[in-house]
Amino acid sequence: MFYKCANCGGNVVYNPEKKGMFCPYCDSPDSEQRTEGDKDEMVLCPNCGGELVYDEYTSAFRCAYCDTGLILTPRIDGAYRPKKMIPFQMGKEMCKKALRERFKKNLFAPDDFLSDVRLDGMSGNYVPYWLYEYQTHCDFQGQGRKIRTWVSGNTEYTETSVYDVSRSMDIHFDKIPVDASIAMPNDVMDLVEPFDYKQCVDFDPKFLSGFRAEFYNFSAEEEENRANQKMKASAEKILKESYAGYSSITTTSQHVDIREQHSEYALLPVWHYDYSYNGQDYPFYINGQNGKIVGEAPLSKKKALAYSLTAFGICYALLALVPLLVSFL
């Protein structure tokens, strides 16, 4: 399936900057007409007839021949239909700007690292996520110490007060995100967070037009453990914050009990930029909603050497010339 422009027949895509559907060929807004392709797995591009190549979990991509944004209907329907999604809020140009701003101080990065030529290769991906909801009851028992010290005359007094500390609270966690994609590294996806769910909308395939998307690679049950760990870590921190006033605390017991849990399938936006340098890959992931960047800048040894040696030369010249000049005056 793809979206055809009612005015010119070009491919209509979702444009984050314009916050709507847009035909890049005739500049028409909201001129899309849903055009169905093969109901089953698509083999040939419904627009140009070119042979399609895509991965096992791909649900949206661009045709390699005509660049049409295609959506594989069977992979977004039924059990694979996401309940919610956050449409891309940042377009490619905004991402380029964010990357340049973030790495502008990385003087030793290779010359073409932030060039248009390279950055044009970045792709927008809707990553499959499971969003977990937990109703929990948490309690804590422990012994806390408060130590107070004061000086009177030439004597220092230390008062130690020991308390019996207990806390009990219900914590309702909602939409804890866990990515369900093999291609996306878990630790990186955790860093790409947080997403602002105020912009979360019901799933609409239009938002996929022009972007890459996957359906979930793992079931909600398979990913539950990660969500559980995230929830427990957060609950323990909240408990800890509640007894923060003590100088030291000894835990007697601590429980985080899950009373209810649910999960829902959603697509969240992430830009992906792969930069290769000297045989090494430097992947960058950018939150498509707020522009948070995860990735480490590459380093050009040649550039680092040139800049460092010059800095050394300038520093030494200043240190050597100033006293020499003063001694001559």
Binding site: C138, Q143, V162, S166, S168, Y243
Partner: peptide
């Protein structure tokens, strides 16, 4: 959190 209750009883000083 909801129903947030706590107790801090002084045992000794």
């Amino acid at each position: 959190p909801a129903n947030n209750t706590g107790r801090d009883n002084l045992l000794h000083k």
